[in-house]
């Protein structure tokens, strides 16, 4: 199999994830899009592991899985907190940083 198969699939997923991060209004949906981005990176890592014939890429993919679990936990906790304080998780209403 050609290595670019995996890599291009990962690139497509990555771009879709980026689109989701930009387009979505609901904070949970943004987090889901971030998961798409992370998964595409992991797909890349596994593909590199095959290309270089070493398991390092797979190990890093496992690290990314752990990090992603942590990220989702903290991220959703923050979303809950925001929801509790404002009764809404629409990101465009959270514009305290407006310049």
């Amino acid at each position: 199999m050609l290595a670019v198969n995996f890599l291009i699939l990962a690139a497509v997923l990555f771009s879709i994830g980026v689109f989701g991060v930009i387009a979505r209004r609901n904070a949970v949906m943004v987090l889901m899009s971030v998961e798409l981005v992370l998964n595409s990176v992991m797909l890349n890592l596994v593909a590199f592991s095959q290309i270089t014939d070493s398991i390092d890429g797979q190990l890093f993919a496992l690290f990314v899985i752990a990090i992603a679990a942590a990220e989702v936990g903290v991220g959703l906790a923050m979303v809950l907190m925001v929801y509790r304080n404002r009764r809404s998780i629409a990101l465009d209403e959270l514009s305290e940083m407006k310049g």
């Binding site: 991060v21 990101l91 959270l94």
Partner: peptide, 13 residues
């Protein structure tokens, strides 16, 4: 400088 996360994300990417 909208303060909106999505747009910052768009700029970043």
């Amino acid at each position: 400088q909208s303060g909106k996360v999505n747009q910052y994300g768009a700029l970043l990417f």
